[in-house]
């Protein structure tokens, strides 16, 4: 599906990614975890060429894409959905308008757009919110709209860059459940980047652990399921009871 071959990314003299090779299998949920600055988001963004590698190749469906330019790159990106930590919705567009944008960009005929937008919104459970504006939605709802927008073009791969980092535990579970459904029902390969171990463990079948721009290890695991997610108050209590992370003076 997606293969990175000896990819390197430099910012000036700093090597953010150091000759990494990684293969994402079709249909899997692949987690990428690491501390801040480990290079996990840069690695993810290389998969749709939001970051171009300085060395090495990005291969999608046996085709090298890192030398493509302009229209060809845009075409590849249209086949890869992406969601971010922030929802990145257009505040002046309705939920329907936001989800319809990728179809407009892909020049899908107007008569087919409504049907596909509504299918996507139904999938994330927000079909009744189609006329609302992002400011009228909660954080979790906004992220679900972003997911609907990312899947409306029927992508084969969904790239998720810290999609739950700014959400509470309940909303995180909702979002992870939606991602799981996308993988299982729509057969979409998912690559998810997170610094939260619980998030990665809940969904991923394989996990790439990164440190200092390199792959530390790739581990096969059995997903624990989304019910195990602990965030916010639950995590704080756990940390307090175990005596860790308490900075009160």
């Amino acid at each position: 599906m997606i293969t990175l071959q000896n990819v390197t990314k430099r910012y000036g003299t700093f090597e953010a990614i150091q000759s990494i090779s990684l293969h994402i299998k079709p249909g899997e949920i692949h987690g990428i975890i690491g501390a801040s600055g480990a290079g996990k988001s840069t690695l993810l963004r290389m998969m749709n060429l939001l970051e171009k590698p300085d060395e090495g190749d990005v291969i999608i469906n046996n085709k090298k894409i890192n030398h493509l330019k302009g229209k060809e790159i845009r075409h590849i990106r249209q086949s890869l959905g992406m969601i971010f930590q922030g929802h990145n919705l257009v505040g002046n567009k309705t939920v329907f308008g936001n989800v319809a944008v990728p179809l407009e960009i892909a020049k899908v005929e107007k008569k087919h757009r409504t049907e596909r937008v509504m299918e996507s919104l139904q999938f994330v459970g927000l079909e009744t919110f189609k006329d609302k504006y992002p400011r009228q939605l909660s954080g979790g709802q906004k992220q679900r709209v972003a997911i609907a927008r990312a899947i409306v073009n029927d992508p084969k791969v969904l790239l998720c860059d810290e999609p739950t980092s700014s959400l509470d535990s309940t909303t995180t579970m909702e979002i992870l459940e939606v991602l799981k459904q996308i993988n299982q029902k729509l057969n979409v390969t998912i690559v998810i980047v997170s610094h939260e171990m619980d998030v990665i463990r809940s969904l991923s079948e394989r996990v790439t652990v990164m440190a200092d721009g390199q792959i530390y290890d790739v581990v096969d695991i059995k997903p624990t399921g989304v019910h195990k997610i602990k965030k916010g108050a639950a995590t704080f209590v756990e940390q307090l009871k175990s005596g860790g992370d308490s900075n009160h003076s």
Binding site: N48, L50, I73, R74, H75, I76, R77, Q78, L80, M82, F84, G86, N88, L89, V90, V101, P102, I105, A106, A146, R149, N153, L159
Partner: peptide, 11 residues
């Protein structure tokens, strides 16, 4: 972020 999302959609 809105511009990043647009680029990622192939706009």
């Amino acid at each position: 972020g809105v511009i990043h999302a647009a680029v990622s959609m192939g706009a």
